[in-house]
Structures are given as C-alpha cells and as structure tokens.
Write a protein that binds this DNA or RNA. Sequence first.
DNA 1: GGTGTTACTATCAAATTGAAACTAACGGTA
DNA 2: TACCGTTAGTTTCAATTTGATAGTAACACC
Lengths: 147, 147
Amino acid sequence: MNGENNCNEPCPIARSLAFAGDAWSLLILRDAHAGLTRFDQFRKSLGIAPTMLTRRLATLTEEGLLEKRRYSEHPPREEYLLTAAGRDFLPVLFMIGEWGRQYRGGGKLVRFFDAETGTEIKAVAVDEVTGARIGTRPIRIVTPEES
Amino acid sequence: MNGENNCNEPCPIARSLAFAGDAWSLLILRDAHAGLTRFDQFRKSLGIAPTMLTRRLATLTEEGLLEKRRYSEHPPREEYLLTAAGRDFLPVLFMIGEWGRQYRGGGKLVRFFDAETGTEIKAVAVDEVTGARIGTRPIRIVTPEES
DNA sequence: GGTGTTACTATCAAATTGAAACTAACGGTA
DNA sequence: TACCGTTAGTTTCAATTTGATAGTAACACC
C-alpha cells in the first residue's frame, strides 16, 4: 500500500495500518508480548525468512513499537524489547484473537488466563464513557472539515 | 504469507490474520461499517486499484465477512453487505483506531460519538470476567498439547 | 445514436516476498 | 591451532503480488 501516505489521513485506523497492516508485524508483536526478544527466537517461532524478519524488526523499531538493546558487546548482539507503544498494542491483539476464537475456532486453541484469578480471559471492547459494548449502539462519525 | 496454513495453528490471532493480515481488507471493512456497499464506493473511497478490490472483496466474501447481494437484475449489479462475522469485527477496528489516536494522533482526526448519549467513544478492551483492562494484569498462556 | 454509470477484466511493469546459501564475529572444545 | 556451534544477520535470485492504466459488458437516459 503506502505507509507514509496513510499517516496524513484523518482516520486513526488508516494511520495504524501504516505499519500494522501486515501479518508478520502483528505476529512479531504477538511473540514479543509472549516474551520473545531475539532474532532467532522470532525466526524459529514464525518460520519467517530472515530477510523479512530483518525488515519487519527494523520497521517496528523505527515506528517505536520495539526498541533495540545491546545485550552483549562481544560478540555484538541485539535484542528487541517492547516499548510503551508496543505494550499498548496488546488490546488490539486480544480483540483480533477474540474474533478468531469466535469465527475460526475449530480444533485446539491457545488460551489466555488471568494469572491472579485463574479465570480464562474473554476480551471485549467497551466504550469507557457509557460502558456499552462496541457495536451494540449506533455510532455517529464526525469527519474534520478540510482545512 | 500463507492463509491456509495459519488456519491450522492453535493461535487465534494467527487464524484471524489468514485474511485480516492486510491493510486493504481492514480498510474495506472499515468502509463497510461506515455504510459503503458498492464496488465503486469502495474504489473511490480507498483509491484502490480495481484488480485489488475485486480480489479483496472476493476473499472477504469467501471468508464470510461480507456477502454479495444482487440489488439490480437489469443490469446485473451486486453490492457487498456485512455479515454477522463482519459486524463482529468492529471491536478490532475500534481498538486499532484507539491505538492510532494515541500514538499517531497529530492533526485532524475522524471522531466517533455515541449517537444516543452524544459522548465521544473511547474504546477500551477489558476482560469480561474480571472487568480489568487488558494489559493491566499478568497473563498466563496455555498452549494445547500436541495431539 | 451518443453519453454516462457500474462493475468489473486484461495487460504488464514494478515492487515485494520467500527460499537458500552465505558471512561475520565470536565462544568453546580437542 | 583447527574445527564446530551459535547468533544475527546479508546476498542472491526466482516467484508472487501489487498498482496503474486501459478496456469491456450491460444496461439506462436523453
């Protein structure tokens, strides 16, 4: 598509898609949330070609979702850690997962539990103001005037 | 990537990405939620090449997020409507939008309001069981045993 | 008969992706 | 010293996908 272009659009969804509109990036973020940090961990987990992985990690780093940290000077080795922006992407991943569970749910599935209560997590999106679930009420879309 | 392959993976995120792991599909779904139904509406809204649009609409239809409906016999004309699965994708779009608003939020942005209360919608993902916001508590991931 | 609308398909160059092999910089072992 | 293994990539190149442009089919309207 066109990453730079999207960032000037008024739609916040389009802006996010400048980098997240590709499956590899989302899977890398998923694995990063699962605790992976290193090149070869991602490569083995995803079965991704190293060229792709190099590029995706670079993009995610440039976009501020991951940060590179040197964990060894000799030999020089880097690992990739989630930034605050990267961590805040978790709700998106969970909602994507919920949809997948509901509509592509056959067979064995990974499951997520609240480590404190032990209950299985069921992610839902709500409007923080009204408390209503997203999609249960009519929405009014307001587009900014052209300047 | 590889759509078919992902559908056998145990991760519900990976399964969703079999079709949603591409920016055009998500933007088409966004526009469908905004009320667009016809080929040329999508084409003009997105500036997408017709070849791409044909393919993406076909995939989304096959995957069960859109359905084709004939709205004119002479000449034969089809429109694309959201299915239940397509409508249930709205929370994903909202969470993507929230992230974009937070981290790519400069300049003019489209805004969403609750049509009943008139308040601006702020989408957050919560665990329906505990009520806690996703990302605020430790998570335990349980992978199914290999069969 | 001519123009406009809608929903495409055809063609083809350019960009992206994926697979495989290779490299650099070490550390450990024999 | 020679050799192997690990990690984080790069190089190369074929195959696929994409994007832009033009064309088509089936009408409606004037």
